[in-house]
Design a binder for these strands. Structure first.
Lengths: 241, 241
DNA sequence: TTCCTTACGTGGGGCAGCGTACATACCCTG
DNA sequence: CAGGGTATGTACGCTGCCCCACGTAAGGAA
């Protein structure tokens, strides 16, 4: 069930009209996304945009005291580096590989030029950006109102949507960093989910056993993000109707 | 000190080249923003974009159980309705007038057409959108890590930046709805700020007496948002250098 | 096998904020 | 100037998560 290596593994690239993808092709460079790699540092120069073919990248804000909080996650449905075509060049957040994979990258000048043509890529990236905004706002809401267990469920589901199997390679400490909570809090919540048969884990590997039950326990935030993403990311051709 | 009624009261419109503003002028319609008015409902049709000349609009997410959380605020520095040019047509959040004022609005078709020209307005709106994204991500971080008093300081400062005087017409209940906390929590935090001479309030009117001290007590989130906004919103001419 | 690093489990004390209930006090209206 | 609606103040018990400290166990390396 191994997918062929192709830029079309990324949904945004796959949704481009043939002519536009052809124009980009010579500039697309496949690069690995090793676990833990920092793609952009907060406020740092962004020289490339990345279209993941597999794996997950987290957008993370790190505070002065070192505490962190995940803002959004990006997988093969999206792109990392929106600040380049938005015109800001950089952002105050960090992009880190949360699950290893690979991506197709484009130099900043290339993506900016293609974006400026105002064709399909522009419309696609803007709609994607809006779905990313929804993910960010829902993170804010969830942080305010929902308890750790619900947030953990949301996080697991968002990750699962971006992975090929039911298994996540991820320690509880890393999840805690993403959620911006203590590791012990994750241990307790994960323990309850395991006791209830929703997941099963051992030393940095989490298996989701019952996705349906996970969706029952999660807060509304997950559904909002999912629904908006589905709505905004339908192929442009389907929008004409 | 009354400013002349002009579209240039809005910073985005003011930053447009004369030719572009001229093209939009016949379509700009000045409308009041009465306190409490709902500009967009969650998921509802968005027929106009609004460029506030004065007043403040809150972007608010309202949960199924009625609880709410503010995502971002928009004043004369910005625009309400980014979903129109982003291509999503709508968003899962509500836009409510938090402080009365007035705005210039444009029909959806007009803003979309002007945006599609790919000239100054497009670049301006995209940079503005990025600064809005920063505000949203910082809201998420703040909700996760900072205590109510700090969040209140942040909220007061963000509001103050968008108002002409040091006075906010705002009850503690409304602030609580924005922050997504209990009214009593706001009462306590505001009481401390008043006892320490930073603010002074009575029945729905808050006077900021010592802005400097407010900036000492606020968390880093305010500075991040402010800095990004200042960085992204400099006139395009200044960017050429 | 043994060791040692790393991941997970557990417990005690503390605090911020919640839900609830009710008291006070302002200010508009009649 | 009296009444009533609304804004603010205060209190109490509860819970979710924090900080801190330590215990247990998995699994790779020698």
């Amino acid at each position: 069930m191994r997918t062929r290596r192709s830029p079309k593994q990324n949904h945004l690239l796959a949704a481009l009209p043939a002519a536009e993808l052809l124009r980009l092709s010579p500039h697309l460079e496949r690069v690995p996304l090793p676990l833990g790699a920092v793609i952009y540092e907060s406020g740092g120069e962004q020289d490339y945009v990345y279209f993941p073919a597999s794996g997950i990248v987290s957008l993370l804000y790190v505070m002065n005291d070192g505490a962190s909080a995940e803002i959004a996650v990006v997988g093969s449905e999206g792109m990392v580096g929106i600040a380049l075509f938005m015109g800001g060049e950089t952002t105050p957040s960090r992009a880190v590989v949360q699950s290893a994979g690979s991506a197709y990258r484009l130099e900043a000048t290339v993506i900016k030029a293609e974006f400026a043509r105002g064709e399909a890529l522009q419309r696609l990236l803007l709609r994607y950006t809006q779905s990313l905004i929804t993910q960010m706002t829902q993170t804010a809401v969830c942080n305010r109102h929902h308890v750790l267990e619900q947030q953990l469920c949301r996080w697991l589901l968002l990750s699962l949507d971006r992975l090929p199997s039911n298994q996540l390679v991820m320690t509880q400490q890393l999840i805690a960093n993403m959620l911006g909570v203590r590791r012990e809090g994750v241990t307790e919540a994960a323990g309850r989910l395991q006791a209830d048969g929703l997941i099963n884990y051992r030393r940095g590997r989490i298996n989701v056993l019952d996705r349906a039950k996970l969706e029952e326990r999660v807060c509304e935030c997950y559904a909002v993000v999912r629904r908006e993403s589905d709505r905004l990311m339908v192929p442009e051709t389907a929008l004409a109707a």
